[in-house]
Computed example of a mutant assay.
Amino acid sequence: MEVQALLITFREALEALLIVGIITSYLKRVGHREYTKYVWLGAALAVAASVGVAMLFQLVFTGFAAMGSETYLKIGIMVISALLLTQMVFWMAEHSRDMKKSVEGKMDQFVTAGNVAGMVIHSFLVVLREGVETVFFFAAITHGNIGAAMQGWGAATGVVIAAFVSYFFFKGTMRIPLKTFFKVTGAFIVLIAAGLLVQAISMMQDIGLIGSVMPHVYDLTWLLPEHPIDYEHYVRDHGVAPVFSGEVGVFLKALFGYSSMPSLEEVLAYIGYFVVVYLLVASRRGQKKAVVEKPAVASLEEQAKNVM
Rank of each mutant, 00 (worst) to 15 (best):
A187L: 15
F10I: 01
S50L: 09
E293G: 00
H227C: 09
G154Y: 07
M88N: 08
V132S: 07
M92Y: 11
G63C: 09
L41R: 05
F244L: 15
V103C: 00
I271E: 07
G31A: 11
A200T: 08
L224G: 02
P177N: 15
M261G: 05
L85M: 13
Q199W: 01
S263K: 10
L220Q: 06
H95S: 12
V51N: 06
T24M: 04
M174F: 15
A298H: 05
V307N: 14
E2L: 11
I176R: 01
K253A: 09
Q151V: 11
F61Q: 04
L268C: 05
L223G: 00
S245H: 09
K100R: 15
V165S: 07
Y218Q: 09
T62F: 13
G154L: 05
L280C: 13
G118R: 06
A5L: 10
H227N: 15
H216V: 14
K171L: 15
I146W: 03
G249Y: 02
V132I: 15
M308G: 11
M203H: 12
G246C: 07
Y35W: 13
G186E: 13
Q287Y: 12
V292K: 11
T157P: 02
L178R: 02
M119R: 00
V111D: 01
L6Y: 06
Q87K: 14
H122W: 10
A148L: 13
E34L: 02
V267T: 10
